[in-house]
């Protein structure tokens, strides 16, 4: 079931709205004196497909990296599926906890640079974590990996290693690898930015397919505006470490309310 994209009436009883699967509460991130995120409040509903757009350096990738625990917030609370991922007060030194490791199991990530393991075949890349992290037996993992490779249209490439594949193929394997861990939330960090233009389509097709056929929550940072408009339930415009505007794609792209959104879209849609 996909959540309604209609704005909830203010009078709606609170318990009818689904509990958010991702919740950022007053989250800040500083790099020295540079504030990448400024006391961000941000929620994503279960199953929601959200695209994050904005100029580079606006902090949009930082959101994904904090969710994946690749970066530590300077302060704030982050909850995923009801569990606390981060709870940081200013100046606190944070250590990785068991709870953090368990919570992040619910999240998968697709990287801009694919980050496939170059010494392993496509198949080995996919079965590695299910076997060694989830403890799945090898036959089952291979069977599932074969299904996933078919899903991304690479059934015939399972014995190829990353150097033998095109960027588009590598990224599709990376998506299959992330799916093999059955995440509740899948993060996409500019999944097509490192690709040659003619290879972007094949990757977008796979993501589109996922968006339309699964109830997985998807959070995507992208520069592909048309694509974001097509597959998203909601689009969030980021600038300068803060969410400037958030709404259904039709509203953001056709009738943006904020001047900053208008100038950004004018600039990127011009060519």
């Amino acid at each position: 079931m996909r959540p309604s994209t209609e704005p909830q009436p203010l009078s709606a009883p609170v318990d009818l709205a689904p509990d958010p699967i991702i919740r950022f509460q007053n989250v800040s991130k500083n790099w020295g004196s540079n504030q990448v995120l400024k006391s961000l409040n941000f929620e994503v509903a279960p199953g929601e497909k959200v695209s994050i757009i904005g100029p580079s350096g606006s902090g949009k990738t930082t959101i994904l990296r904090i969710l994946m625990t690749l970066e530590t917030p300077s302060e704030g609370l982050v909850k995923v599926d009801g569990d606390t991922l981060w709870d940081v007060s200013p100046g606190q030194k944070v250590r990785e906890t068991k709870q953090m490791r368990e919570t992040r199991r619910k999240i998968g990530m697709v990287f801009q640079q694919f980050n496939l393991f170059p010494h392993m075949t496509a198949m080995e890349n996919i079965i590695e974590a299910p076997i060694h992290v989830l403890g799945m037996n090898k036959a089952e993992a291979k069977e599932r990996a074969a299904e996933l490779l078919n899903l991304v249209g690479l059934g015939k490439h399972m014995n190829h290693t990353p150097p033998q594949m095109s960027g588009g193929q590598q990224q599709r394997v990376a998506i299959a690898r992330a799916l093999a861990m059955r995440p509740k939330v899948l993060l996409f960090d500019e999944p097509t930015s490192a690709l040659d233009p003619e290879l972007i389509g094949e990757v977008l097709n796979v993501i589109r397919n996922l968006a339309h056929t699964t109830d997985m929550t998807m959070l995507m940072v992208t520069h592909e505006m048309r694509f974001a408009e097509e597959i998203s339930d909601r689009v969030v415009m980021f600038d300068n470490g803060a969410a400037v505007e958030s709404g259904p794609p039709a509203q953001i792209f056709k009738d943006p309310q904020q001047e900053r959104t208008r100038t950004f879209l004018r600039a990127v849609l011009q060519h």
Binding site: M68, L70, I107, G108, N115, F117, E128, A129
Partner: peptide, 23 residues
């Protein structure tokens, strides 16, 4: 080693010892 490899391991829930040994 490229930082991306470690990040991919974290995203797949692999613990440090497993990361070193397998990847």
């Amino acid at each position: 080693r490229a930082k991306g490899q470690t990040e991919a391991c974290i995203a797949l829930g692999m613990e440090p010892a497993l990361r070193l040994r397998r990847i």
